[in-house]
Nucleic acid binder design. Sequence first.
DNA 1: TTGAAAACCGATAGGCAATCGGTTTTTAAT
DNA 2: ATTAAAAACCGATTGCCTATCGGTTTTCAA
Lengths: 126, 126
Amino acid sequence: MQLGDLEKQVLHTLWQQAPASAKEVYAILSKSRGGSLNTIQSTLDRLYKKELLSRAKEGHAWYYSPRVERRQLIAKIINQATEEFAEHQQSGLIAAFASMSEELDAKQLDELETMIQERRQALERR
Amino acid sequence: MQLGDLEKQVLHTLWQQAPASAKEVYAILSKSRGGSLNTIQSTLDRLYKKELLSRAKEGHAWYYSPRVERRQLIAKIINQATEEFAEHQQSGLIAAFASMSEELDAKQLDELETMIQERRQALERR
DNA sequence: TTGAAAACCGATAGGCAATCGGTTTTTAAT
DNA sequence: ATTAAAAACCGATTGCCTATCGGTTTTCAA
């Protein structure tokens, strides 16, 4: 899943505001980067074909929405990275922890444990 | 940091066995994928220019070694992914956890906590 | 000194994001 | 129904990067 610069910007835009038409996305992004509406249109199309966006016709324009949440995409990228590089396949997160724990301080460890507790409770509640 | 297929294979090879010359890497990889020695040479060169490998001359050949550990590269990729996509910048690992915790079961949570404990002890020992 | 080994250089192919002009389709207003 | 505007769609182009490999130069050791 390789994403170009503009594709990322479009995704960010839609995570903030969706659904949105090409014109609307263009209105937002053209301020910072110029370019033409057509460019935005074909980028939306590419993302749609990559199944990262869904779309529905409303009036005469397509309205696009992200098909994955921000966090899901991050998770996907991490899983992919760890699959490709980790020695033994394990859950992406476990591999990530193994790779990154050296950089963590006590406070961050506390944070993680809090999140783990929350997750445990979510599991129990089922 | 975009890596092609062959570049990944070369990295894997060197993580298992380094330092190694182009010829040695070629000897290993040609079994599974054929190709020419020159291709391996230029791939090593590209990785060297990307500062993922170091090299030293021994005899008349360069001997290459990884300049980053496997886990460092994974960590780098994760940090990069989270920087690009996370809303608020936080430690890559914290963001990763927030993104991925939904997928974890009780056993994996246990594993993580064990690793956290280990990390705590490593911190204390300093 | 010379022949082999390896590095180095340059060209090419293939894939993908970004770009945008031009054409077709759709829609809404008259 | 007609038509003008809006938007989608199509296709070409550019630029970047990996992979590939032939050919040339450099290096080293016998």
